[in-house]
């Protein structure tokens, strides 16, 4: 019972603050905090989604340049903020209540660091695995790597493949006949370049489109549910992916939907 009353009170509280802040920025810093906080939360959830997609997708996904720049800047600012705060706390030996926000902010920092670290490690793993494929991609369409990799990743990729190639050359390849020295021969029956497993099965969740932007791709299935129709060319099958549903599908079938953010991998 008491919870209900509190809820109502909280609602009232929220309403009044909302009303107070919209026409004129009454509170000195509350509106500013609100404004940046909204994008902060959105950025974080986009980052987490990106992390999940990257972990499950068989190929290397494009690097989220602007998002990562924002997140990393915030990370650095927060580390600095915490450092000044903690030195202040130590000097003044404030009451214990001041330590609680500090504790939570540190915990949060570690959580964000973990996501960033795990995402980058996953990407580095894929860069290692698909080094030759990335080289082929670069040769075929110059500039493709600029969007696919970050500047640091590109440096890593170039040096890693140079070192690997040198090792191969020194250890084995120079002892072989000249016509067998290639590492990226695609002429024979089996291509030497490892491509991502395009038809791998992945679990995916179909997102709801934003209410203000109806999606032209959305169709209606037999049960009257909104859905995306995808075609499996190998089987000549058309499958309806209902919004809000969970499916196991081939990656290549849903790749375009994934790039548009209409489905997420789980």
């Amino acid at each position: 019972m008491d919870i209900n009353i509190d809820d109502i009170l909280a609602d009232l509280d929220r309403d009044t603050t909302a009303v107070g802040s919209t026409p004129a920025p009454a509170g000195d810093d509350t509106t500013r905090l609100d404004d940046s906080a909204a994008t902060v939360a959105a950025d974080y959830s986009t980052l987490v989604t990106h992390w999940c997609n990257e972990r499950v997708a068989p190929e290397l996904l494009p690097y989220p340049h602007t998002l990562m720049a924002r997140v990393l800047a915030r990370l650095a600012a927060q580390i600095e903020h915490l450092e000044t705060l903690s030195t202040g706390v130590l000097e003044q030996t404030l009451d214990r209540s001041a330590k609680l926000p500090l504790l939570c902010m540190e915990a949060e920092l570690e959580r964000l660091k973990f996501v960033v670290r795990s995402l980058l490690r996953c990407r580095l793993g894929k860069i290692d695995r698909f080094g030759l494929y990335l080289r082929q991609l670069d040769a075929r369409s110059p500039g493709a790597l600029q969007t696919l990799l970050s500047a640091q990743e590109r440096v890593y990729y170039e040096r890693h493949s140079a070192i690997l190639l040198k090792l191969f050359n020194n250890a084995i390849l120079r002892h072989m006949p000249a016509e067998m020295q290639a590492v990226d021969d695609t002429e024979g029956s089996v291509s030497m370049i490892d491509e991502p497993e395009w038809a791998r099965f992945v679990f995916l969740y179909v997102r709801e489109p934003a209410p203000d932007a109806p999606d032209p791709l959305l169709a209606v299935d037999d049960h009257g549910q909104p859905c995306y129709s995808v075609n499996i060319p190998e089987l000549g099958e058309v499958v309806d992916l209902a919004v809000g549903g969970i499916y196991i599908m081939r990656y290549n079938v849903i790749k375009d939907l994934l790039m548009d953010g209409k489905v997420v991998l789980i």
Binding site: D7, L9, A10, A37, Y44, Q78, L94, A98, E108
Partner: peptide
């Protein structure tokens, strides 16, 4: 006392906690 400044979620709620009136925060917090 120290203000909360969070970088992954909206920090409006944690900065406006009032004892014994319910609010919503992330599970980890």
């Amino acid at each position: 006392s120290v203000r909360w400044k969070l970088i992954t979620t909206d920090d409006h709620n944690v900065n406006n906690m009032v004892a014994m009136s319910s609010t919503e925060v992330s599970l980890w917090l």
